[in-house]
Amino acid sequence: MTAPPLAPAPPRVVVWTVAVLAFLYYLTPIAARLAAGRPLPWSLVLLLVLPAIAALVALPWRERAPIAIALVIAALWVPSPGVLGAAIVAQESVARRRSLTSALTTGAVLIAAKVLELFASASGAAATAISFELALAIAGVVIATLVGLLASSRAQAQHDRESAEQARREAEASRINEARMAERERIAREMHDVVAHRLSLVALHAGGLVYRTNLTADEAQAAARMIQLNAQASLDELRTMLATLRGSEAPPEPPQPTLAELDVLLADAEDIGQLVTVTHIGDLEAVATHASRQSFRIVQECLTNARKHAPGAPVHLSLTARDEVLHLRVSNPLADLAIPDASGSRLGLVGIAERVGLVGGTLTHGVRDGQFVVDAALPWGAPAKEGA
């Protein structure tokens, strides 16, 4: 969950109007004495003016470090009452950007600084003037605190509204997605029934061609035509069902590689520094597509496992196609000084077993004479468990 955004600062014109007007307010007695030609102790004038100007100069940094700037201004408020405007602006920044505790603390420090300033300059001043000055300072600090807290509260409320709206949109999207998936499953079940019906017709007419020997040429052609039409319709329905399950926005998947692309796989392995030697017996092109596809993925997974668990070790691949069975063996020496790669899901052999099982084959793997060996036998007589 993201942090709530900070409340925006008040307009600059408002900030500087408050700060400068309060400064000018405390300069009016000096201006009046100068206009009347009365002498002024310049040390006292500098003590009044310089801290106020320093406080105004520090204000641009209040957004970056509000508490630090407020404490600096509090220190400058002790010698000069002209810091009042800068103190109000700094207190608003603390209340808007920091916690309530921080705002109350800096507010108390600022008021304490004002009390010290009044005690330091109270000689000869009327009690009414001192009370007015203190009330003005307290009112300014309190109002600044309330304004900052209100801005912070409004920003938090806006953030909560946006978060609630985002959660509502995500919940609505999730609900729509669940409804879409449920509809896709329903459509897929319906198409499954349709495909099963059409395939049963194909099987029925094919059985008629097999067992009926008294069919005329026209009858045999009609039955073959019916088989062709139902097979084509079944294929179309199956494509539609797969597209439905995949989703309309998903692109069609490319054809899966077979042993015909084995040279490309081996070249890629050699390009990254893996030494692979290959021996094969028999015609690999005769291997049925479903077995060839699974064999390619098994070899790919074995090469990946060898790179992970025995980096730098040579790999030997043996392929033998005989009697409609592809015998596949991948072996590599065990890791010696190289550090195996511990990343990955460690489910490579599980995936290989699943692929071998899809074609009704057998799989063995383990350590033999210092070598890790994977032996698989994949028959390709009939793709009993793999959908074409």
Rank of each mutant, 00 (worst) to 15 (best):
F119T: 07
L59M: 10
A70I: 00
L27V: 07
Y26M: 08
H159W: 12
R212H: 13
L349P: 01
V315H: 01
A217W: 14
P257A: 06
S295C: 04
P255S: 04
G360H: 07
A321S: 12
W16M: 02
R180W: 11
A32H: 12
E92I: 00
E386S: 14
E172H: 13
Q158I: 09
R184A: 13
A103M: 07
L149R: 13
A144D: 08
A382K: 07
E162C: 02
V315W: 04
A86K: 00
A260Q: 13
V276G: 01
V109W: 09
V83M: 04
A310C: 03
L262Y: 04
R346M: 12
V330N: 00
A36N: 07
F132T: 13
V194Y: 08
A313D: 02
L40P: 04
K308Q: 10
A188F: 06
I176S: 14
A233P: 01
P10S: 13
N177T: 10
E185G: 07
E170I: 10
I187H: 04
R186Y: 09
G387A: 11
A196M: 09
P11N: 09
T258Y: 01
L47W: 11
V78M: 05
G208D: 14
L337K: 14
V142I: 14
K114F: 14
V367F: 01
R62W: 02
D323T: 03
H192R: 14
R97D: 05
R293A: 13
V20E: 00
F23I: 03
E249L: 15
T240H: 12
A112N: 05
L337Q: 15
R346F: 10
A382Y: 13
R198W: 09
V78C: 04
L50P: 03
S331Q: 14
L265F: 03
A182C: 08
